[in-house]
Nucleic acid binder design. Structure first.
Length: 255
DNA sequence: ATGGTGGGTCACCCA
């Protein structure tokens, strides 16, 4: 079972590119982030015509997550517990072929001075709580998404210069570890312990041409899902050319 | 060190 995660930075702008990639790569499940549309204007029909089912959680103009699957999607839940005032569309979870699969768009945080920064840290805490329940129940669980934190020095282009900046601040890495230390395994890093592979390059300042990126998109697997992990990779070719997302797709294959 | 581009929506906010 091939499960892909991709922050597409607007599905309406990226519909053709995403469907071309689907046709060429044939995943079972596609987890999207930053779809940036309400569910009513999500280009559902063209995905359904390719044989996919969809579960959506959108909002006007920003955020938005989706699960797109060749297999039936059951028991869909949206949002994370822990903050009744949080209406942002950043988390969707469903059961597919006996696996609990989630698509998450962790808040970027904007900067360490922004009010979005404590929201990001609190979101991690809510996700940690939620994952704890699934792990306790030994549910086979896969969560893919844009985590907006680069875990280790190898995951950023300049760990010294970037230390303390957004997406590579010690508090953020600590928040990520508090999630993963419970027993979630980073699929790409488990398969490729020493490979440097960014998943995001800023659209500004020619960062793609200088290869100044970060690995902030990944799939985290519960122990029961990790037992089935066969391979993991990502596709930097999708970052070249025109009309592209600033993120590339990354995936894992479970047996 | 700053500013750069792009998406949303329609004056800026976010990344």
């Amino acid at each position: 079972m091939k499960i892909v995660s991709w922050n597409v930075n607007s599905i309406r702008k990226r519909e053709t590119i995403v469907q071309g990639w689907l046709a060429a790569n044939d995943p079972d499940v596609l987890l999207l982030q930053e779809t940036k549309t309400v569910d009513l204007t999500f280009p559902k029909a063209s995905f359904e015509a390719m044989g996919y089912h969809l579960a959506l959680s959108g909002e006007p103009g920003r955020n938005g997550v989706a699960i797109i699957s060749k297999h039936p999607i059951d028991n869909v839940t949206r949002g994370l517990p822990g903050d009744a005032d949080d209406t942002q569309a950043r988390y969707i979870e469903a059961t597919i072929e006996g696996l609990r699969i989630a698509s998450v768009y962790i808040p970027n945080g904007t900067s360490t001075e922004s009010p979005n920064f404590p929201y990001k840290l609190a979101f991690y805490d809510r996700l940690r709580h939620h994952a704890a329940i699934l792990l306790e129940a030994e549910t086979p669980y896969v969560i893919g998404g844009d985590f907006n934190v680069a875990p280790e020095p190898i995951d950023v282009y300049d760990p010294t210069a970037l230390d303390g900046t957004i997406c590579y601040h010690p508090e953020e890495r600590r928040a990520l570890r508090s999630l993963t230390y419970q027993g979630l395994y980073d699929a790409f890093r488990t398969i490729h312990p020493t490979r440097r592979q960014y998943t995001w390059w800023d659209l500004r300042g020619g960062s793609w041409d200088r290869d100044e990126g970060m690995r902030i998109d990944y799939l985290l697997l519960s122990p029961q899902a990790t037992d089935r992990l066969q391979s993991a990779d990502s596709d930097p070719k999708t970052r070249a050319g025109k009309g592209i997302s600033d993120h590339i797709p990354t995936w894992c294959v479970l047996g």
